[in-house]
């Protein structure tokens, strides 16, 4: 009782930097059931057609995080991406290594930078000698306290988020979504005593480089939602320390502007973000904008119903996070 199959076309990135002058794409065609995972297909290619095709894989059940790669330009786990929908949508399956990490061979990338960013957030409990762990007993933690970790304990460090992230590509100083989600996991841990220090240290160290594009959340196979946890970190960082960075000052200024008049006062926002002196550095860009859009110099009037808006802000204003 064989299952129906469909012809599947794979265009697979091949590159051995030690031998090849440049990468190439190799086409493999085979008949497969539509629910076949891309990983199974690649392993079949290895076993039956080309044993030199190189990739990382282990558990085949989306828990070891080894087989993240680009499948039709999306960073995904090969083990849980099925060939049927990919063929239907794209007519072929383009398989490439993850982005933002150098290729070692074919689909295998060097993950050193990813792991370094992870260790830079100091992913371990920091204890206070004044508050030792209970002797011979587990720490008490309520289910509600466990809820505060959100989905971060599900992270399998597959680096799909790191591959998908444009801020990682643009700025080597950005820790990346996984490392920041991991930081969040320690910041909300009731056993950790370095919460404030962690938040103060991350503010000038990449927290505000996140572009809020949510591509990490889209890429994450475990629904960890790194971009939402980065947003939480930003709120918590401002709450413990105020806005100390251009990024956080911009965020606070933006809110002040809207709360005040319902419209942005761009000049005021630039001053709030960079400070009066810092504005000098923005003069060049400012002049270019003014030339195209002179009305930007005018102070905006308050919009109609701004008092209603302010009531919304008042209602939304969260209590200081614990």
């Amino acid at each position: 009782m064989a299952e129906p199959t469909v012809p599947a076309i794979f265009d697979v990135y091949r590159y051995d930097p030690a031998i090849d002058r440049e990468p190439r794409y190799q086409r493999y065609t085979l008949d497969l059931a539509p629910h076949t995972p891309v990983l199974s297909a690649l392993l079949r290619i290895r076993a039956e057609i080309d044993p030199s095709l190189t990739l990382r894989y282990s558990c085949r059940s989306a828990i070891c995080g080894s087989c993240a790669m680009q499948i039709n330009s999306k960073s995904r786990l090969a083990c849980e991406t099925h060939i049927g929908p990919e063929m239907e949508r794209h007519g072929r399956i383009v398989v490439e290594p993850m982005r933002n990490q150098a290729v070692l061979r074919d689909l295998v990338v060097d993950q050193a930078s990813f792991w370094r960013q992870y260790s830079l957030v100091e992913p371990h409990l920091k204890l206070d000698p004044a508050h030792p762990m209970p002797e011979g007993e587990p720490t008490s933690m309520t289910p509600e306290e466990v809820e505060r970790f959100k989905e971060t304990p599900r992270c399998i460090a597959c680096a799909a988020c790191y591959s998908a992230c444009p801020a990682v590509e643009a700025d080597a100083g950005f820790p990346g979504p996984m490392a920041l989600a991991k930081l969040y996991r320690f910041v909300v841990d009731p056993r950790d005593h370095a919460r404030q220090d962690r938040l103060v240290r991350i503010q000038p160290n990449g927290l505000w480089l996140c572009l809020r594009c949510h591509l990490c959340t889209e890429a994450c196979p475990k629904d960890v939602r790194p971009s939402e946890r980065i947003r939480d970190l930003k709120e918590m960082a401002i709450a413990v320390q105020g806005a100390t960075e251009n990024g956080s000052r911009h965020a606070v200024g933006f809110k002040d502007n809207i709360e005040d008049r319902g419209l942005l006062n761009e000049m005021r926002l630039v001053r709030q973000t960079y400070g009066t002196l810092g504005m000098l550095g923005q003069v060049g860009q400012g002049l270019r904008i003014v030339r195209k859009k002179p009305e930007i110099m005018r102070r905006p009037h308050a919009i109609e119903g701004v008092d209603e808006l302010q009531k919304i802000y008042e209602a939304l204003d969260p209590e200081e996070p614990k």
Partner: peptide
């Protein structure tokens, strides 16, 4: 207990155990 102290996040009963 040691693994809990190392940082493992276990599921909890309502009383915190």
């Amino acid at each position: 207990v040691e693994m809990e102290h190392f940082g493992t996040i276990f599921s909890r009963a309502p009383d915190g155990s």
